[in-house]
Write a protein that binds this DNA or RNA. Structure first.
Lengths: 230, 230
DNA sequence: CGGCTACTTGACATCTATCAACCGGGGTGG
DNA sequence: CCACCCCGGTTGATAGATGTCAAGTAGCCG
């Protein structure tokens, strides 16, 4: 991996975590690297190990018997891959590009979590945040046109990345069209067409592995107008 | 209210909760009743009070600026209305039919929760379960046809009710078509038509305020066939 | 009994899925 | 080093599902 593995495993502890506890947590985990596309764990599998993402991007998804797939999230460095409470994984996870993770034995991690009300509370807040994200996603899946869905996805993605580093132009888009489609409940052709339409409107510009966002922010999403139209 | 308020506030404590702790929790809350349609709290409002549902049905929803609505859940007795950690409500809630709730001061409830690792853990598991529900819902919203969505909704609803009492025939359906539509990301006309179609297939039978489920179970949903077709 | 609200049904428009062809870049093997 | 192939992506034509607009029905409450 060319990138430095600088992302400390903040995990659900975020910044407000006690340095001592953070050190303890780090000692509990072992660093592992997954190549692009590799499955980290699968739905319904026993969750003996649980993972926190330290570098790269993952995709979490559920699969239906007939092969249809729903991507439920694209975790970024610092995110935990699911809740460490259940004894089985509730979704599958794999690496989008090369990723670095911290692996924990679930039993050890649980013991650690329960040893400190502070950590426990952090985990609660993480869970509440995840729930909130899922409910936002419900809103998007239930109400949006393809264009709204794609535009909102791009903005959210940019903002999440910006939260980690400086705003990058172009915004990298490491996942495939199919992943975005399965995230937004659309077909990959629709993703492609919608991106093309947004590009024609001069709202975005597609680049090899990313996208430039011109007139796309929360305000324009809220009003349904793009800066290019104003 | 004609029904007895027999539903004890199990809340996130469920059955495994220590009787002493349960008594303490009950003392913390005050019983309140909301008439049909009344708003319990609204999105973004300060969450000074938080609620557990003891009788009736609620609807939780997010609203977009242009009025579009996404129902994120239909809580049943024993369910908590959201996570008590955030200082603001992340969605609105109102009563579907007359409901009875336990109201807590958030600060007091939080203090209570943090006083006991056992309770804390219960709350965690509740949160994890809520997240799981939301992700199942994502799957449904992203992948299903209208017929799949409605059929799955009916089965899930029946199963949730069955978990509380005996299976009822007909299964009561206290929410409006519009609520179901906003839950499933469809239009109310589509709900109406889809229900009619399922009735013609002899899979369901509509009754004044409920529905009889004939050949509808998890197996038939998985295979895409209904018992009536076999 | 009247009027309101929820619900149903119909006709039509539109969006997205589907099927299919094609393009382009990166990697592999000759 | 070049050619080929494979995979991801784009674009086009078409059909079908659902949204939209509109009218009409049924049940409930005053």
């Amino acid at each position: 991996m060319s990138r430095a593995l600088h992302s400390f495993p903040t995990l659900f502890c975020a910044e407000a975590c006690d340095p001592h506890e953070l050190r303890e947590l780090r000692q509990l985990g072992t660093s592992v690297v997954f190549p692009s596309g590799k499955t980290i764990f699968s739905e319904d599998e026993r969750a003996d190990s649980v993972f926190g993402l330290s570098d790269g991007v993952a995709r979490l998804y559920k699969t239906l018997a007939d092969g249809r797939r729903q991507v439920v999230a694209f975790p970024l460095p610092g995110d935990f891959l699911g809740m460490p409470f259940a004894d089985r994984h509730r979704f599958s996870a794999d690496a989008v590009g090369e990723t670095a993770l911290y692996r924990f034995l679930r039993s050890e991690l649980m013991h650690f979590v329960q040893s400190s009300p502070n950590i426990m509370r952090r985990l609660m807040e993480f869970a509440a945040h995840e729930l909130d994200m899922a409910q936002h996603q419900l809103m998007l899946l239930g109400n949006g046109s393809a264009e709204e869905k794609v535009a909102t996805f791009l903005v959210n993605w940019r903002d999440r990345l910006a939260h980690l580093t400086n705003v990058l132009q172009p915004v990298p888009l490491p996942m495939r069209r199919q992943d975005i489609a399965d995230f937004l409940g659309l077909q990959l052709e629709t993703i492609s067409r919608t991106l093309a339409k947004l590009e024609q409107k001069n709202v975005i510009r597609l680049t090899p592995k990313g996208v430039l966002l011109n007139g796309l922010d929360h305000m324009s999403l809220a009003t349904g107008r793009t800066a290019a139209e104003v």
